[in-house]
Design a protein around this nucleic acid. Structure first.
Lengths: 341, 341
DNA sequence: TTGTAAGCGTTATCAG
DNA sequence: CTGATAACGCTTACAA
């Protein structure tokens, strides 16, 4: 007796009907008499038959999978995004093919091509780093969008098959900075870690707020950290070095909660009282904000809602509907113990 | 001019060879003359042809994908695991189909079946919760293993197509507890959050260490938290309630760094000095351990190494080699500021 | 309501 | 070294 995975033919035979009929009940399509349907169903149950996904994919030209790209799935923020996407996609009958690309452009390109060649139905680029300030660097996205709809989380890019959802980074940072200034702090450092389009938006938000308050911004106030996103000590020492080099500051606006947490550590080590002598505002309103002591005031960028919107849009696009190209939400400052107001 | 995705036939025609030959150069298989190979390659380049993955899948009966299951991809620990797996799998030419199942058994079953029906080549169950203390609850794993190799991260289960990698939870907790006792603390709480096989192993480690030190363990010292893994306040209030109810303790062994961090918050709120009056040991040696202030002594469970081993094993199994069913590593206590020794 | 048969785009087995 | 041709297992007009 030969090892034989059961196919639609076996069912057809066992139920005494044609494979077309079997296929019909499988896709509970059009008119099949209740009796034959029952026969088929029985045969299926009896054999434990499952349709071959590859064959089906070949016939339908889809296996109902969405590619999710992210630089680093272990990043707190991206991990959450992945979670939301995967959940919502599966609810819509789609699987998620995950690719962690790292931050190098060429690896992102490779991943995009890989996913295209695997014939995903759509692609989600999660995280602002996929869109570069330098326009030419974004060609890989345009190319991808010629094949499948491309969804951008936390980034903006215009293109005919490209859809994006993000919070208004400029405004959020602008407001946060303004509030900090209003609370009496003038010497503020903007602590950044991403050279993405969104990153430059945030930085502009900081600069604009300072300028509008009549404060000058020197290059040294724009601290950039590009090490591991988990190495709190290294981040803090970035700040320590800046201070040692003569920079004096009593407030930090961070592009990220981890950076903010490192700023808190820095300030405590310096002996500053928080928030009386030193204020910190983070970004993402992640778990880290409340892990810190004191707990960090942070900007909630509405991740779940963004993911929600993006999948809804994707589903719409995939079923041929016209969908909005861009949805922008407002971030919200969640006040905790590192600010006075 | 009709919209027509380019197929192997187009290439065959354009290059003036048969599709068989095209297929050969595609899989750079056996003998193809350099000239014809060049012709084919040119045709491919000229058209931008990519082989259809579904057709190939149908023919080869594999699309080189591995299903990764985890309860919650946004869990700090699992997120890292996913990252390692995805990376290592891709290096081996496999894609990762991610399913976040949540913690309910029926959803896990559903996810497993889904992946099987999508014809993944193997399956990784990441996290101890997939294996239940109650044997019957593990049938879904055995069933899956009849179809594809099943890899268990951080869990143990014996079966003919089941492979596992984990650290010795019992021993790790036993040692941590013993050290805390040795440092002079007797009234210790074990703070747990998982009713998994691994969870009971850890708890036993705690109990055994206490017993071997001649200390009694009451039920109340076994605190269980089953809320959100991110709600530090809720975790801390679990401890506060226990204290309010009359439980007195000066040390916490936590099954998880988040729990440990909440214990630190609890102790600080109580006014205990750490580590002089109160000690805490966490588990996983995650980012949270160093986000805390004071930073938390935690057990490193060698996640990356475990993932590494598991993928290597999987690759071996998939290529028909005999592979070890179980690899167990030792955890390592990483000393920081919440313990004296 | 049901069956027949033509794809879908590869890979793989034979011959040549 | 190369070419026909038969799988692979399903979907879907088109007939009946």
């Amino acid at each position: 007796m030969k090892e034989h995975t059961v196919t639609i033919y076996d069912i057809s035979e066992k139920a005494g009907v044609s494979i077309a009929t079997v296929s019909r009940v499988l896709n509970n399509s059009s008119n099949v008499s209740d009796v034959t349907k029952a026969k088929v169903l029985n045969a299926i149950k009896a054999t434990g038959y499952t349709p071959n996904a590859f064959a089906r994919g070949l016939g339908l030209n889809t296996m109902k999978t969405i590619g999710i790209l992210c630089a680093d799935s272990s990043d707190l923020y991206l991990a959450k995004a992945i979670y939301f996407f995967e959940e919502q996609l599966r609810e819509n009958g789609y699987d998620s093919l995950l690719c962690c690309t790292g931050y190098a452009l060429k690896d992102k390109k490779a991943a995009v091509n890989l996913l295209i060649s695997k014939k995903v139905d759509g692609m989600i680029l999660a995280g602002s780093h996929f869109v570069y300030p330098d326009a030419g660097d974004n060609n890989y996205i345009f190319e991808a969008s010629e094949k499948v709809p491309v969804m951008l989380l936390n980034a903006e890019l215009e293109g005919s098959n490209i859809y994006c959802a993000c919070t208004d980074d400029h405004k959020s940072i602008y407001k946060a900075t303004s509030e900090m200034i209003a609370s009496g702090i003038k010497d503020i450092v903007y602590f950044n870690n991403a050279r993405s389009y969104s990153g430059s938006l945030k930085e502009r938000g900081f600069k604009d707020a300072m300028k509008d308050a009549g404060l000058e911004v020197t290059e040294r106030q724009l601290q950039f950290y590009d090490g591991s996103g988990e190495d709190i000590h290294e981040m803090a020492s970035r700040l320590e070095k800046a201070a040692a080099a003569g920079l004096s500051f009593r407030g930090v606006i961070a592009a990220d909660d981890a950076l903010a947490l490192s700023a808190v550590k820095y300030a405590k080590k310096k002996g500053y009282r928080i928030p009386e002598d030193f204020e910190v505002i983070g970004y993402n309103d992640s778990m880290l904000a409340v892990c810190s002591d004191p707990e960090i005031t942070s900007i909630d960028n509405k991740l779940e809602e963004l993911c929600q919107k993006l999948t809804t849009t994707l589903m719409g696009v995939l079923s041929g509907e016209e969908m909005p190209k861009k949805t922008i939400l407002s971030g919200e400052l969640v006040r905790r113990q590192t600010t006075r107001n």
